[in-house]
Design a protein around this nucleic acid. Sequence first.
RNA 1: GCCGGUGUGGUGGAAUAGGUAGACACAGGGGACUUAAAAUCCCCCGGUAGCGAUACCGUACCGGUUCGAGUCCGGUCACCGGCACCA
Length: 808
Amino acid sequence: MKYDFAAIEKKWQQNWEQSKPYAAVTGETDKPKFYGLIEFPYPSGQGLHVGHPRPFTAMDIITRKKRMEGYNVLYPIGFDAFGLPTENYAIKNHVHPAIVTKKNIENFTSQLKMLGYGFDWDRCIDTTDPQYYKWTQWIFLQMYKHGLAYKTTMPVNWCTSCKCVLANEEVVDGVCERCGSPVVRKEKSQWMLAITKYAERLLNDLDEVDYIERVKTQQRNWIGKSEGTEVDFTATNGDKLTVYTTRCDTLFGVTYLVLSPEHEILKKWKDQIVNWAEVEDYMLQAARKSDLERTDLAKDKSGVRLQGIEGVHPVSGKHIPIFVSDYVLITYGTGIVMGVPGHDQRDWDFATKFGLPIVEVVQGGDVTKEAFTIKDDTGIMVNSGFLNGMTVRAAIPAMKQYVTEKGIGRPKTNYKLRDWVFSRQRYWGEPIPMVNCPQCGWVPVPEEELPLVLPQVENYEPTDDGESPISKMTDWVNTKCPKCGGKAKRETDTMPQWAGSSWYFLRYMDPKNDTAPVSPEAERYWGPVDWYNGGMEHTTLHLLYSRFWHKFLYDIGVVHTKEPYAKRTSHGMILGEGGEKMSKSRGNVVNPNDIVDQYGADTMRLHIMFIGDFEKAVSWSNEAVKGSKRFLDRCWNLMELATDDPEISEKNMATVHRTIKKVSADIDELKMNTAIAALMAMVNEFYANGLTHGDLEVLMLLLSPFAPHMVEEMWELTGFAAQYGKMAMQMPWPQYDEAKTVESTVEMAVQIKGKLRGTVTVPVDSDEAAVLAAAKANERVAKSLEGMEIVKTILVKNKLINLIVKPC
RNA sequence: GCCGGUGUGGUGGAAUAGGUAGACACAGGGGACUUAAAAUCCCCCGGUAGCGAUACCGUACCGGUUCGAGUCCGGUCACCGGCACCA
């Protein structure tokens, strides 16, 4: 009988649709729980990409094994459906984004079902569903009430094409992450979320979670904690100029100050700056530059010296020049830098260009050639008053203490992390539920009025002044103040796409609740997520944002754990043939449908796991898929070869037990490729040795998570389904016996001075004398030993013997 | 520039704690079956030399530690990802 994958897959998918073997049971106390999570997809118009099945299949295998091991498993799926591509499609084709989204979700759903994933479809969520985003809005209101959401005018990243503000984190190489257009700075009033208030906890609590190390490192780097000192300089007009430095030990080496072009004080000084026209021109140029352009100029420093105002050194009282330069960022520290050209390379470059004095305050380098920046015990302080003779390591706390006592400075901790710009002037997002009243200011929409539903508009394009399309819906915009009842206007900004994905894992626990985002019972039962796998591209933004929201929800008692995810792993990208990124423009995108049509879903699942190391990028090859199909055919054909013996055969005993051990361990470590290789090797053994019904039973159980459709069919045809009254996926996971994994003899390598000279087969655990005797009996080894004397032997039990010889 | 990661046959990739490099596959070659093809089954498959047993070389490159290095250490190069004048 032939392996008819199309009929088999259809049959079992229909069966599962009705019998619901993947339903998670909230509150089940007889079993331990396991919550496996994958990043929910954005339902794009192109449909499923071959990159999607990689993480989905891996977690499907993990959760299937967990079920067989007796866990009550939650493996949910949903759609992160707000976002620009849908909105842009709607603008272009004049279709409501909700209609496009519905169609795309239907398409994704059928594609995912086609692959036979064990998702609990009854818990499927959609971030654009008002019943879902009601709670996204609710969480925002709680943040507002706790002082974490605030509105402020600030320089923001303005995408010239999307006509929309982007978070700093969304700007990639100076261009818009989504559309690739240049980004410029613009003043705009924005809703902000104070993620920086959680910086310390976001950093420290990484110690409590099991994330792969490179993910933790990226989170730490993104938060970027730095402990330094603020020092107050003054200007000759009496204004205070506070700088932030991590090298307060070099204070005596300061020869100038630099202001960021965005610094507020420049406008205040307008009338006192003699060369204001020149300064203003520089400020305008800097504002027009994208980060990319500023970066391009990195090697060649630019700036303008202020005429008419100078700085005053807080210790020496000396007057020093003040510059404005775009190498100083307004978003980090105080927006003012003290220039220490002797000991900071950027300052050195700047001072050299503008002919400023370079003062050496740490001995150890040659400051006429380059800055000396080493800050351990190598350098000794000079030209620095009371610091002279100290090491840098000692001078930093000494100076910190000095400026604090003198009242001209203070220790200060800074973070690279900035508050999250939360407003978007876009249509296809959650409306921000706030009302602006001329009398009362910003007033939150009452919770009982949630969800605040997106109004119908005719045109989805952002307005030319950069406001959301919703701003044109006067009926919707004009409202009553919830507080005083007077005339007021609704906020027309919407939330960024990150909002809905910052808490979705909680909603899966209790997706239909209409009185809370998640019930305490469901959250206490399922939380935290036991294992979250996702792409490296989400290891900073999404991961940090959702950890932040979760910590806030912890603070207000919605969740009971500080961290949302106990474990985080990451998968590599699937590249096109030849290692290129898959993209529409290159025309190398592989659609999983084509593979499924030609080879079946089980082959697709198996192959995407076999293709290479899960954590690394790997290129797809259509040719190679055949090998995985061939393997499944070989498994199928074993049904005709198996004898009726229900026991595991003696011949295959060690292979079977070793394979159970290997496959079990490999799945737990995401090494699916070697798990499959072990199964292939076992099948090759079965072909060589013959097999029993008992051998086949183990194979089917081990293969079940990888190729569930085919295995259930085989399970039925071989009579096991009738015998146990269960599907293979409902059987206990096979156990191995360590004693049975070893064979009675072992092949050992014989080396002479580290070079392989032959192999010998000896009983397991043979001692040195026995192995040596066997080695000497080996013809090839004996030949190499002629005229030699053995001076030393090194035995590695059951692996090798190394003979050190010299001529005799 | 900084941080992180990766370099292994024609190809994708294996190789717990330093212990037989190339498992398992793809492609290729040979054979069996077949009228033929497909499918299936069996064998070979890093390089050089040799009919051959075998010898030498071989995990990006240079050096080191070690009885023994793909694995550890120092340096170099290349590629990938992230961040970027973070003071």
